[in-house]
Amino acid sequence: MRRLWGRLNSVNVQKAVWGLEELGLAYERVEAGGAFGRVREPAYLALNPNGLVPVLEEDGYVLWESNAILRYLARGHGAGALWPEGARARGHVDQWLDWQAGTFTPAMRDVFWQTVRTAPAAQDAAIIARSVAEAEACAAILEAHLRGRAYAVGEDFTAADIALGCAAHRWLHLDVARVERPALRDWYARISARPAARGALPPLS
């Protein structure tokens, strides 16, 4: 039995859901985190002592951290597809997974929380402006990399596109002014049209 714990409005849960759907793996998703609670309950903390989502359970095996889950799924079920052949291609997939988690998503965290999850009267324009500037620097890096490319790594869709795609979904749907990035837009349109993406990328909330 395979179970994924986490709410779908979490960008980290979206990565795991997209990976599972892309690979056609059967799973049950259990709402947890945010308004659904559960993550501070002893039973959940026994799965993930951080009290965060997502958590993957698979026949007694427990794994947390969204990109670790994505790597596990890709390596175990998507070798040659989500997880390309060749050490150098895999190194580039890892590079973009780490950049998404450590750079791009943190850069936009404050603007997301301020504009999506904070009441308008309580929003801080300075915090929003700083976060937008940091996210724009990341978007410029991604734009330059994607120019002339169909996918993030090599000629095929990989786990890197899933992680980056979930972050781009958040960035491109924030209610802020952004620099137009045509390569980023074209790549996002291409990957978000995949059937597996449709159920993994809900409106921001």
Rank of each mutant, 00 (worst) to 15 (best):
V153T: 03
Y151I: 01
P54M: 11
I128P: 10
L47N: 01
Q100I: 04
A119R: 09
D175F: 02
Y61E: 13
D98T: 08
A121F: 06
A163S: 13
N48R: 13
L63T: 06
A167L: 06
T105S: 09
Y151C: 02
A150Y: 01
E143D: 13
I141R: 11
W83N: 01
D156N: 10
L70C: 01
V53Q: 12
P120Y: 10
L70P: 03
N48H: 12
A79I: 03
A46K: 04
V55L: 11
E85R: 07
A139K: 09
A122F: 07
D175M: 13
C166K: 02
T158K: 00
T103N: 12
I127K: 15
R90E: 14
G154Q: 10
E136K: 09
C166N: 00
L45S: 14
D98W: 10
L142K: 01
M108C: 07
W83R: 00
H169F: 07
V93I: 07
G165F: 02
D98P: 06
A74S: 14
P49L: 13
A46I: 11
W113A: 07
G86N: 08
L52H: 10
G165A: 03
P54Q: 04
C138H: 08
V62S: 06
T158C: 00
A87C: 14
Q123G: 13
A135S: 15
A119S: 14
A79E: 15
V116E: 04
G51E: 12
A89M: 01
A150K: 11
R117W: 08
H169T: 00
W171N: 03
D110F: 10
A140E: 12
H173S: 02
V93E: 03
I128Y: 10
W83F: 02
H169Y: 02
N67F: 00
S131Q: 02
G165E: 07
R75S: 08
D98V: 14
A139P: 03
E65G: 09
G86H: 03
Q95E: 15
H145A: 09
Y151H: 07
W99I: 03
R75H: 06
V55Q: 05
N48L: 15
G78Y: 07
R90L: 12
F157K: 00
G102R: 01
S131N: 02
V132P: 08
A125I: 12
A133Q: 14
T105Y: 13
Y72F: 13
A125G: 11
G102D: 06
R170L: 08
L73G: 13
A163D: 05
T105K: 07
L164D: 00
E136S: 14
T105D: 14
G165M: 02
F112P: 06
R130K: 15
G91A: 10
